[in-house]
Amino acid sequence: MFNSKTILFFLLFFTSIGCNRKFVSVINSGHTQENFRTVIPFETKMGLIILQAKIKDESYRFIFDTGAPACIISPEIMKEIGADIITSQKIYDVNNHYQINEFTKVSSIEIGNTIFSDIGTMILDLKSIPTVKCLDADGLLGSNLFRHATWYIDYERKEIVIANDLASLEKPLEGFSSVKFFEGFGGVPAIFTYLNGKKILDTTIDFGYGGTVCLSEKVMKHVPDTKFWKGYGVAGIGLYGDEIPSETYKGDVDLFSLGNGLDFQQEKVHFDGERNNLVGSGIFKYYHVILDWNNKKIQLKRNNISRTAENDFGYSYGYNKEDGNVYVKNLYERSEASEKGIQLKDKIISVNGENLEAISEDEWCNFRSDKDQSAVRVLVIEREGERKEVILGKSI
C-alpha cells in the first residue's frame, strides 16, 4: 500500500513452526455441500474485501484473506457459539513474534446460501489491534475455507460468486488469462512471478494485503539498474499488533509479471527484508478474478476500473493508542516528504485542516475511512514543541 496515509499492511499473515498433528488436522478439516452457487455483495475498506457471513444465524463481518492459512474469530464469537478449544499452537507473525494461540472448529459458516462445515479457526481479537479495528471486522476468512469452493470476484459490481466448480459459476470465461498456483499450508495459493524476466519463487496471492507487490529484499539483485528509495521506520504491523522498525526499499521496476501475458511495466515494487513475496489486492482490484482450487488456477481478466497513479510522497504515519496522537512512522530518503523536512517520529497535528491531535481510535478510523489516501497536501507537524506547515504536491 504505497501511500502517505498509513503504515504498510502485513499483519494478516501468519506461520506456524513445529506443528502438532492435532493442529494440522484442525486446519485441514472442512467441507461443504456437493452442488452450490451463491452471489454475495462485499465492501472494500482500506483496500481489503469485507463480507458478511453467518455463524449460528448471527451475521458477522469478515476480512477476505487468501494469505491466511486459517480463519480467525474473536473470543466473544467463540463464547457466543459455544465452541470448544481443540488444540493450541505457537504462531509466528511477520515480525517473527509468537504467541500460543488456541484453535477450534466452527461447525457451520454460512456465506450467502453456501454452508462451510467444520472449519478450523484461530481465536484472536483482531479489534485489539488499532490498524485492524478500523476495518470494523469481527474475524477473518482464510484459505482453509476458500479451498472448498471456486470464487469469482467482481470489483466493479462489488460481488463474489461462490460455486462448487468453474462451470457452476455460470460466468463467461472468454478473455481470461490463467496462471497455475500451488497450495501452501492451509490451502494458501502461491505462484511463480517474474522480475525483469527472472523467476521469483513462491509469491503468495494475498487478498489480505492492500498493496500491489511486495518482495523479499534478496530478489533486488534481479533489478540492478532500478532506482530505489530507501525507507526507515515501521514498515509493517505484526499479527499481535507489534511494530518493528526496519529498512525497506521501493522502486519502479521495468517489468513485473504474473506469467501468461499478465505483465506490469514500470510497476512500483516494495522490497522488505526477509518477508514473504506477496501480490495484493492493489493489483487484483483492476481485474475480474477467478480463484479455482479444484484446478489450482487463478484466472484474470481486466475490468473497466481505471488504474491511475497514486501520489506517493514517501512517508507514512500511524496512530499511537497510548496518547491518542498520530506520528510519522516510515520515511523514504530523497522523497518529497524528506526533502521538505518531515522526519521520523514527527507528530502530525493536522492534515488538510483536520485535527489529528489527541483523538480517539474511532476518530482515527473515521479519518482513515473518509479520506482519499492520495489526497494529502497540507500537514501541520510538531517536533520538540515547535510546529511547522508542510505542503506536499509532487509525487515521487
Rank of each mutant, 00 (worst) to 15 (best):
V161F: 04
G231Y: 04
D165N: 13
W151R: 02
E159F: 09
H222L: 00
T193W: 13
G208K: 13
H148Q: 11
H148T: 06
V223E: 00
K230I: 12
D154R: 06
D154W: 10
D206C: 14
T203L: 06
S177H: 11
D202Y: 14
I200W: 05
W151K: 05
E217Y: 01
A163N: 01
F181K: 01
Y152H: 15
I191A: 14
S177M: 08
Y209F: 15
R147A: 02
K158L: 05
I237W: 05
G210F: 10
F185P: 03
E174M: 07
T226N: 05
L201K: 14
R147C: 14
T193A: 11
R147E: 11
R157L: 14
T212Y: 03
L169Q: 01
W151E: 13
Y232I: 03
Y155C: 03
F185N: 05
F207L: 15
T150A: 01
G211N: 10
G236P: 02
K218D: 15
G175Q: 07
D165K: 01
L215E: 09
K171L: 13
E159N: 13
F176M: 03
R157D: 11
V188N: 05
T204K: 11
D206H: 09
H148S: 12
I153R: 09
C214K: 08
F176Y: 15
G210T: 07
D225H: 05
F181A: 10
T203H: 10
T150Y: 02
G175S: 03
K158F: 04
K199P: 10
V161T: 14
G208N: 08
F192R: 04
E174N: 14
Y152L: 03
S168E: 11
D165S: 05
F207I: 14
G210Q: 14
G211V: 04
F146E: 03
T226Y: 00
N196W: 01
Y232S: 15
F176A: 12
I160Q: 03
